[in-house]
Design a protein around this nucleic acid. Structure first.
Lengths: 80, 80
DNA sequence: CTTTCTATCTATAACCA
DNA sequence: TTGGTTATAGATAGAAA
């Protein structure tokens, strides 16, 4: 989307990569929020920015609670 | 988006909620994939469907590796 | 529970401030 | 960097299978 069709590959220009990260991270969090509300489900989102900084999303439950729910699944249900 | 503007609140009709989950889950995973490639970052996404089934996303590294990177952060960097 | 079609609503790339 | 603006590419609600 946007003025031009983007190829999905690493953005080499550092500034552009940072700007794109900031914008798309917000978009991704918004989508995760909407999904969690509309469908009333648990969603946990963990991201590390290009500089290594952490970004998180979860609603209702804490990230830790959701991770715990995941870790506590029987092993055969944990594969994708 | 779509034929009508949707209010962001729980979809009460079970069938519609399931259908919306299927569609938006795919959209969210696609966005997470694009962000991870474009910006070359780690993204981990954990979702539980309305029926309790697990959906995961991560690229390059396994979910476990990313969770580990998160858990190993100093506590003061783990808050949002 | 997944998927196709298509009219509409959204997200965002390139700019600009 | 850090946010707006705008033209377009992309996502998706509803209907139906």
């Amino acid at each position: 989307m946007g003025r031009v069709k983007l190829q999905i590959k690493r953005i080499e220009n550092t500034t552009n990569r940072q700007v794109t990260f900031s914008k798309r991270r917000n978009g991704l969090i918004k989508k995760a929020y909407e999904l969690s509300v509309l469908c009333d489900v648990d969603v946990a989102l963990i991201m590390f920015s290009p500089s290594g900084r952490l970004s998180l999303f979860s609603r209702n439950k804490s990230i830790e609670e959701i991770l715990e729910r995941y870790v506590n699944l029987p092993e055969h249900e944990r594969g994708r």
